[in-house]
Design a protein around this nucleic acid. Structure first.
Lengths: 344, 344
DNA sequence: TCGCAATGCGGAACCGGTTCCATAGGACAA
DNA sequence: TTGTCCTATGGAACCGGTTCCGCATTGCGA
């Protein structure tokens, strides 16, 4: 016997009236509602969300597809999504999706399509046209974070513009030997983040007439990655750059540690900029471009919720830029030997 | 019309036969099964997990209650849980649960109790007896990670033993001025992790006859926390300890950075040990006790899955210890001035 | 050859809610 | 006074699967 039927019987009303009283939909007299609520409280009634989902077609659950949970950017995004979703009364179901195709197919067909979720937020993962179509066919809103996905709305910073801006900043300080330590072009996630950031650096260098070979070194996207790469790049004083644009703050911090290790003063002998706004950036005095991933998560949720509104019509699928904050700390200055006030 | 009914009609069988054919339960002839499968593939049939859950009472979904997703220990545990749960065919629904009582009550009543999950894994959160009882009443297995919860099985390292062991290690190296930089005793999570770790240090000091006031300083559980605490503790050479037991690796790394900042050589002038096995420990040459949080997550899942087996009987609710690995790196040695081989 | 078990399948109940439809009383305008 | 609308409620269908029960075959041992 369904639990709500127990409540109904106890309150002396029909199942339908009990449902209306508890859900607040439809006409129920004040007094009847009170009786039903009292009966429900009396037997500790807890509605079954499963049954409710089956009847209404709404799960009040959002699927989050994400490649990592233990990396800074992704865990920050996740925490932003979570903190926006729960107050709205939604559950969050987590699907870790790697690049590998089989697990991917599996997660996709086996989990996402099974009507378990009302909407999907894809973080740092590009969906194939087929995947997008099949979700669209189910009428489920999708929002992407971290890159462009055709036919759906995506939130991201402009990676090329970001690294271009940072490079220009270094150029404006007077640097002429600028190098990029960024992610491996082949190992990047589905989105071309690494390529974009490299391209931005190169654009700025070209514009300034400072292009040179040896302007890039691929390193793992982590503090140890930046450290090892930093040691390799900085150890030869004759080829050492005077400024480094790191692909992310973690790499930048690794480079700072490598510089310290080698006795290279930052920023006097080496300027370093990062991208991210990592938790540790302040402690290391890192000049960086903050991209506030948790806010990206919150905004994605807002977008999703708008689309979930019953009255939501067709919505333009746009690429939405995320504002960034340039935070100048103590890791950048004019290059050694330059007139410090040359272009300030 | 239910989707499976379409499949059935297309295959020329009844709904029940179609269900049996697709789920593999009950008797279906080889040939009928093939017809049904073909029909299902033809119309792209995807079963509704909601309907299935309602009928069977099983959601194939596990709720994970966790206070943070963007801190190292927790994100590692989460990733361990995820990677064990998905291959077993379960979804993972994430509930972030803070210490604050209202949000807590809300998450608990509103989400967990609603029959959305088959089981619960609580990470770093102690549940009140009332909460445990209400989950038990629903017949849902619960496993805790990170501390002791009465009446349910919990997985954790022995925090007191861990810090006692590390302190004994420093004592055996000849250190006599040993200090603990750990978490604030008031701000700790529900589990008394901070208190346990402090207690372990004090036990070892007492046993060695090295007790002293000023044996502890509370710092935030983070690299910046350890850094700031390290600067404060190390800046006065006259009171400076020769060895520090950090409450976690992040604090230890912060202390290492503070020591570098102050020109104190590690390990020659200062030995430092941590607890965790943090990703960055190796890079900083940190001697630490690894606790493998992702393995804790995997083991919790294994426990949960055992309890979810239909034939699972009453299971002892035990406190399960997690093995730790002591990894000696370059942050510990004998104290300055001591005969290095005194007690090796 | 008979009886019983194993197999194959359809009908219908069921999981626990939501909602459509019908009914009925009361208020209010015509 | 009659018709219409709003309120309040019950009955029943429905969401989309699963499973119990019953019936019909078939196979095999006695």
């Amino acid at each position: 016997m369904s639990a709500i039927a127990d409540v109904a019987r106890l309150a002396g009303v029909s199942k339908s009236t009990a449902s209306r009283a508890l859900s607040g939909n439809g006409y129920v007299s004040r007094e009847t509602r009170a009786r039903v609520e009292h009966a429900a409280a009396g037997i500790g009634y807890v509605p079954s969300s499963i049954a409710s989902s089956l009847a209404t077609g709404l799960t009040r659950n959002v699927g989050v597809v994400i490649p990592f949970v233990n990396r800074w950017f992704f865990s920050e995004v996740l925490e932003g999504i979570e903190s926006a979703l729960i107050p709205a009364g939604y559950d969050l179901t987590l699907y870790r999706l790697h690049a590998d195709a089989v697990g991917r197919q599996r997660v996709f067909d086996y989990f996402l399509a099974r009507k378990r979720v009302d909407a999907v937020i894809a973080v740092g993962i590009s969906l194939s046209p087929h995947e997008v179509r099949s979700l669209n066919a189910l009428g489920k809103p999708i929002v992407g974070i971290g890159g462009d996905i055709p036919e759906i709305s995506t939130l991201s910073i402009d990676d090329a513009a970001a690294s271009r801006f940072l490079t220009e900043h270094l150029v404006s300080l007077g640097h002429t030997r600028i190098m990029h330590l960024g992610g491996d072009q082949h190992e990047q996630m589905d989105f071309a983040v690494h390529a974009q950031r490299l391209a931005g650096v190169r654009q700025a260098l070209a514009t300034a007439g400072l292009s040179h070979r040896d302007d890039f070194r691929a390193v793992p996207y982590s503090i140890p990655g930046g450290y090892a790469g930093g040691l390799a790049v900085l150890s030869d004083p004759s080829t050492r750059p005077t400024a480094i644009v790191a692909g992310c703050d973690e790499i930048a911090i690794g480079v700072i540690l490598a510089a310290r290790q080698l006795g290279i003063a930052v920023p006097e002998q080496l300027s370093i900029v990062g991208i991210d706004g990592h938790t540790l950036a302040e402690m290391f005095g890192l000049t960086t471009l903050e991209q506030h991933p948790s806010i990206q998560g919150e905004r994605a949720v807002k977008l999703i919720l708008e689309r979930l509104e019953p009255r939501a019509g067709a919505i333009a699928n746009e690429r939405i830029g995320i504002p960034v904050d340039f935070v100048v700390r103590r890791s950048t200055t004019a290059p050694p030997g330059a007139d410090r006030f040359a272009r300030s």
